[in-house]
Design a protein around this nucleic acid. Structure first.
Lengths: 179, 179
DNA sequence: CTTTTTGTTTACATTTGCTAAACAAAACAG
DNA sequence: CTGTTTTGTTTAGCAAATGTAAACAAAAAG
């Protein structure tokens, strides 16, 4: 649990001295020093204060970094077909489980639908590349046409259906990954 | 700071009693009760323990919920044109600054490029809907064709350019929002 | 109603979060 | 090089909070 390191990094990035930071959030400079070297751990309340003075918050503070591959071609794709429901999914960014976002490309046949997904945390975004689909959220239902998009928190059962006579393609991004 | 509520919610969601949770993370059930009702606040270390037993972590724990509008039509779009660089941007999900992700649709004219973006935290994903673009990351440069995508951490200056003879369209998602 | 299970509250020991002040080390000035 | 300032580290200590054990209450089960 190297909170100290991250705080120090933030402080320096903000061009502050321990003294200045201490003043800002009404703590002693000594304590800031201790925190940065992980000799002690602040309470959650004071951690919030500190982060506030560093222009951030708990949420952003606990979101990490670093990676490798960047561009993904069509053959990187892992494909999954579902005959019953009449859709197939292309994972266009391989093993993105470890990322913040997981984008997939889903193609839904006329009369088909995506796998209903149970409620979970996070957010989902979709952009309809072609065709028209219906977004089902709990027992609500929204029409989304080509060029339109949707954005929601998946706190209810949710899926897409294609009730038109043409295939539909949707670029679907979950954050965090859920598939 | 209603940490307790969230913990209780998680506990119930995992089908655990206070007792069970207490056993799992070697705390007293009384303490769990206090924490859930915000009568006391756990130390960061024990919060980590608790979250671990609930199948989550600080990072995910501090990512919030609740929203309103879901489907966005073309006229919800805020448009911005840049004659000099030869691109225009459509914000397809209005004021998504407060979300985890911010999707935009950027169209780049032949010879044009996007605004170079300075390094920041988070991740970015793009899907080329039409044309071919180059992704510039620091002094690296990647070709990305129609149907291909890219995913990276924007820790270097980054932008897109279109060196072809046709316009290119890219769906670009930043997490967290940066524009 | 009695027994178990689940959750709340109280009294208490211990730890730790945090301060103030002394100390050390750089940075700066003349 | 020597003295002054600024920045960071360490120590001693205490009030406050973290966490426990056990008693208590309420709800569920039998």
């Amino acid at each position: 649990m190297n909170i100290g390191e991250k705080i120090k990094h933030l402080r320096v990035k903000n061009g502050l001295t321990q003294q200045e930071l201490a003043n800002r959030c009404e703590l002693s400079k000594g304590f800031i020093s201790q925190v940065e070297r992980d000799l002690t751990s602040p309470s959650i309340a004071t951690l919030v204060d500190i982060l506030e003075c560093l222009g951030t918050n708990l949420k952003d503070f606990f979101n990490d970094n670093n990676d490798e591959k960047i561009v993904f071609q069509k053959d990187d794709v892992f494909l999954q077909e579902n005959q019953d429901l009449g859709h197939y999914i292309r994972w266009i960014v391989p093993n993105s489980q470890k990322n913040r976002m997981e984008p997939i490309l889903i193609q839904i046949q006329p009369g088909g639908s995506s796998e209903p997904d149970t409620p979970h945390d996070g957010e989902e975004f979709g952009y309809v590349i072609g065709g028209t689909v219906f977004l089902h959220l709990g027992n609500q239902k929204f029409r989304v046409r080509k060029g339109e998009s949707f954005y929601y928190k998946p706190s209810l059962v949710h899926y897409l259906s294609n009730e038109s006579r043409y295939p539909a393609t949707v670029l679907w991004v979950s954050s965090p990954p859920s598939f």
